[in-house]
Amino acid sequence: MKVLDRRSFVGGILLLATGIGFAAFSYFNYRLGTLAQMGPGMVPMGVGMVLVLVSAPIVLGSFTVSEGDRPSFDVRPALTIILSAIVFAMAISFGFLPAVALTALVASLADDTFDALKTAINVMVLTAVAVVVFVVLLRLPIPLIRW
């Protein structure tokens, strides 16, 4: 039976839209030039159009195949891990120590086997290792703490 492969369909549509957007943005914002003397916009516009060309078969093909098994979307790990990286970006302005400690702490919440004591010890060990590696060995020019 022919079913819609949703993942290919959604991915293909997203790529189509990206291609159109990329080509249009290049056309309106950058000088195209001539084929002999290309401006900055010519190649990006071409790449956008090629992207449309190669993602069209994905969208069309997604109607004619049977759907495979759908993987579960690991909401908790995905959001927690990405959040922990964002925490690093925000906390680094207060210094290396808080950034590393907070990132490790937030990341530890990604799995459901949370144990306060183990996590606390782990965060401390990781922070120490990170300080030795990045500050002592790599001499990263960043203060440990900055207020």
Partner: peptide, 8 residues
């Protein structure tokens, strides 16, 4: 958590 810290 250590891998994430090292990546960042």
């Amino acid at each position: 958590p250590g891998i994430v810290v090292f990546i960042c």
